[in-house]
Amino acid sequence: MSADSTPSKETSNPAVDGSELIRFDNVTKRFGSNVVLDKLDFSVASGKHVTLIGPSGSGKTTILRLLMTLVKPDEGTIKVSGEYLSHEERNGKLVPAGEKHIREVRKNIGMVFQQFNLFPNMKVLRNITEAPVTVLGLSKDEADERARGLLEMVGLTEHIDKYPSQLSGGQQQRVAIARALAMRPQVLLLDEVTSALDPELVAGVLDVLRDIARTTDITMLCVTHEMNFARDISDQVLMFDSGRVIESGSPEKIFNDPEKDRTREFLSAVL
């Protein structure tokens, strides 16, 4: 990651780099009177794996939800691959984006949720193939083949014909990962994907994700409390507090030698 890892004194948001895929400019998000993100600037370069850490309520998940267009920014803009996400330009003016524009940009983004959110009315195979067929326009056979490949990767080939309710949490989450990857997104958002799992099921899911991080060039944005996992896969770690990035850098630096007291406190509490 070529993003500046030495935070400046007060504003302390990391500098923006050239080959960026995602860029937040001055983004503010409020829920009621609660400011969740406060004039946030940051960028992620293509192919990098970035982990967001920090206490709960610090705005990490909101960043993912903004990128997935599940919530809209109150101020500021977000760009993905150089395109505005929740805005579009019309007659040289920036206006809230229409559904069509959002869908076009959103094509590049996939997400895995804390609660898996598989569709209970579809079997495993169709959970994975439905969107490639109806959204991307793949043929049934192409989508099937893609799904089988992905199921093999996540080690669930034998469960292809089951309903989600017949799977364990860890298995469901691996299906959800396969489902997101079947859309071939440039960016994969991982929202505390192991928090809802029983402890003995966490390792299987993390192994799959390590695999993906190692073997693909997909860009990953990851909110997690699994610090060892964050250390393993990340190129960059961003420490959040109260809607701001207070520190960022390589995992070695953040985990071994953080600059801010707040980061040190947080890490000693979770490690």
């Binding site: 997935m68 267009t69 599940l70 559904e99 869908r103 959103r106 094509k107 983004i109 996939g110 997400m111 949720f113 609660q115 959110n117 598989l118 569709f119 439905e130 969107a131 109806t134 959204v135 489902r179 997101a180 859309m183």
Partner: peptide, 13 residues
């Protein structure tokens, strides 16, 4: 959350 999963897979309304 089911609606959100649908959004994440870029389904139309």
């Amino acid at each position: 959350a089911q609606r959100e999963a649908g959004v994440a897979l870029n389904f139309t309304r």
